[in-house]
């Protein structure tokens, strides 16, 4: 007697699986579009919402979440959803600015370390080592304090401390590309360094840079929020998301839980959206390293 092992059969589950697998590319693209729209929506929301719902309405004080006020209202009767959107928009803009500066620093130093080598490389690696030898938050506090605190302090601190991993990735990428056969060949053919950089380096580095930048955003935003929360960041007059959460601490024991919970959920969603966006972009560029 003989049997046929595992002959391919088309059961409904199998067809469903095949459909899903074939649609992974569309799903990835869809996720990227959806994530981008969500985050853009948060960032531009203050311009659409205007100042409405932010004025004091004493009759509407301390309302728990309801259909009229999804996030409830605060001790002055202000709508927490609108406040949270304003705050998060501000935090995202600050975080994006700081992260972009950081990405520029990271790219510049990574390229310099990888291209020049020698003492330039040694100094940059040394700086990275020093940065890694201190807890990140302590470093942030030190820099934010030293440059005088405030919005400027947060942006500088976040920008100066988030470039290290990106610089490492770029440096490694440059070193790898530099030692590859096609770059050697280009050198032998007498191509200039600039030509090689444009034709061989850029195509390799740009995807890395893009994914690295987007995955940098959530860190930058979380650190901005943390600094504002402990009072070293944005001033209390600019209600960034960290400030809103810090304020909620004062009303905690009164049982107004929504003041702290709801803005936090919004922040969490934004951070997750960035992570999601980054992962999907990465799996589009390089399916093998994605988290699937």
């Amino acid at each position: 007697m003989t049997i046929t092992v595992n002959s391919p059969q088309k059961s409904p589950q199998k067809l469903w699986r095949i459909w899903r697998q074939n649609n992974r590319r569309q799903q990835t693209l869809g996720a990227i579009v959806l994530g981008t729209l969500f985050l853009l929506g948060i960032i531009v929301s203050p311009w659409f919402l205007g100042e409405s719902g932010l004025s004091t309405v004493l009759t509407q004080r301390n309302q728990p979440p309801s259909l009229a006020h999804l996030f409830g209202t605060d001790w002055l009767g202000r709508d927490m959803l609108r406040r949270s959107l304003h705050g998060l928009s501000l935090s995202l803009r600050v975080g994006l600015l700081a992260a972009s500066v950081s990405a520029l620093i990271g790219t510049g130093l990574g390229l310099a370390a990888g291209t020049f080598g020698g003492w330039v490389d040694a100094v940059i690696i040394w700086i990275v080592d020093v940065f890694f030898s201190l807890p990140h938050l302590v470093l942030l506090i030190l820099i934010a304090f030293a440059v005088g605190g405030g919005t400027k302090g947060v942006i500088i601190a976040v920008a100066l401390t988030h470039w290290t991993s990106l610089a490492r990735v770029i440096r490694a990428e440059v070193l790898q590309t530099n030692s590859s056969d096609y770059v050697h060949l280009s050198r032998h053919l007498g191509k200039s360094s600039l030509w090689i950089a444009r034709h061989h380096m850029v195509p390799h580095i740009v995807p890395q840079l893009l994914v690295g930048l987007i995955l940098l955003f959530p860190h930058a935003i979380l650190h901005e929020a943390a600094l504002s929360f402990i009072g070293i960041g944005l001033s209390p007059h600019l209600p960034a998301i960290g400030i809103i959460l810090a304020e909620s601490m004062r009303h905690l024991s009164t049982g107004y839980w929504w003041l702290g919970v709801m803005p936090g959920i919004l922040l969490l969603l934004a951070v997750k959206a960035f992570d999601w966006l980054g992962e999907n972009l990465r799996s589009l560029f390089d399916p093998k390293t994605s988290q699937g």
């Binding site: 936090g264 969490l268 951070v271």
Partner: peptide
């Protein structure tokens, strides 16, 4: 992944709300 993207201070805040304010089993 959700925890990794949660702000540390917010997680602490949540625990405080749940265990110290609601259940009153932990000091505030």
């Amino acid at each position: 992944y959700t925890l990794a993207s949660s702000p540390t201070f917010w997680v602490a805040l949540l625990l405080l709300i749940v265990f110290a304010v609601s259940f009153k089993i932990a000091p505030i």
